[in-house]
Write a protein that binds this DNA or RNA. Sequence first.
DNA 1: CCCATATCTGCATTGAGTGCATCAATGCAC
DNA 2: GTGCATTGATGCACTCAATGCAGATATGGG
Lengths: 200, 200
Amino acid sequence: MGLRERKKQRTRQDMIEAAIALFEERGFEEVTVAQIAEAADVSTRTFFLHFAAKDDVLFESADVRIDLGLQAIAERDPDERFPAVLRRAMDEMISNVGDDLVSGAAALRVRLAATSPTLRARLAQQYATIQSEMADALHKAFPDELHPVGAATLMGALVGAVSAASVAAIHRGDPPEDVREAMRLGADLVLRGVEARGFR
Amino acid sequence: MGLRERKKQRTRQDMIEAAIALFEERGFEEVTVAQIAEAADVSTRTFFLHFAAKDDVLFESADVRIDLGLQAIAERDPDERFPAVLRRAMDEMISNVGDDLVSGAAALRVRLAATSPTLRARLAQQYATIQSEMADALHKAFPDELHPVGAATLMGALVGAVSAASVAAIHRGDPPEDVREAMRLGADLVLRGVEARGFR
DNA sequence: CCCATATCTGCATTGAGTGCATCAATGCAC
DNA sequence: GTGCATTGATGCACTCAATGCAGATATGGG
């Protein structure tokens, strides 16, 4: 990595650190981009060169590995039914929420989201993306067993349960492994219902 | 209702109609508040006197009766267990999504949300409110059987399933009763899992 | 008819976000 | 090392959403 690239990452990191410090001190809504820029000693224009929006600076390390979920679906055994595939997919994703959870970045986001509609929206957006991409992949992998509405409903329940569980657990201050366990219980709740009787 | 009040409702309605027409023609993001105000022959300041944000104009008739859900929880039979209570609550709420669904306002929102992050966020916010209020009420009603994280997870799954189902069904152009049926199936999927084995 | 009140309006301001032109440092070829 | 293309940083002007404030105007009640 050349000097140019290193410098770029440095200013980026400066902005992230400045932003986090200010957010922790005053809250998300009370800090302006101009203040972040000033604290990081860059122009506001530079901020938007690195981040599309003010909240993006908090999602730098947000690392839900949706690719692992999609991969789990793609790699299914020919005779494997979708509840089993989903169990693998969710387990893969949950076991790999990493850095973010450990570093406390996720906790900071949840804490700040409590007082910022903008941030809540951004958080929701992330889950919505996972939900719709997975639903799409799922329908394509099991076209005869799951119609589009069914797949969407199923992923809505799964993502809804898992996200609510993680937010609630993080909000409570649980350590990373307990958060993951809460997420697993959430996924299990839904998948149990799917397995109980067939779902469409 | 006096003349003053009628005039107020009239300007409000003018703005709503102007906004809907413009949104349908050009999409949500492509229409400015100034344009809506001009089309309704009022000042932009008046727009914000009636609506806190640009997207609020589309949620005038959004009528998810969360009170019915909370009421269902409050009125529970002493020996009724929470899965049964939740069935009643969800059924009450789903059966009473009314006007909005019939008038096509809900469909317009879903259609516009497809191309507007702002609108998606607003939609998500609505569900999030229902989710957290119900989770809270649920935990308070069954303090020994459902701890806070469990209640949050459960409502996350329920609201996630129902909202995804309704959005998918509406997106498909299903008529109101089919949309409600999709929502019921979503709720059922989750509740079946809860009933299958006890949930915490 | 007069006064309190509520709606509507104009104006100024803040803050997010974008387009554009420019400057300066870096990387690269020779 | 010199020349040149690239690219990251910046300043400036601008749009748009949203808010505060101060008036103008109309309504409704006495």
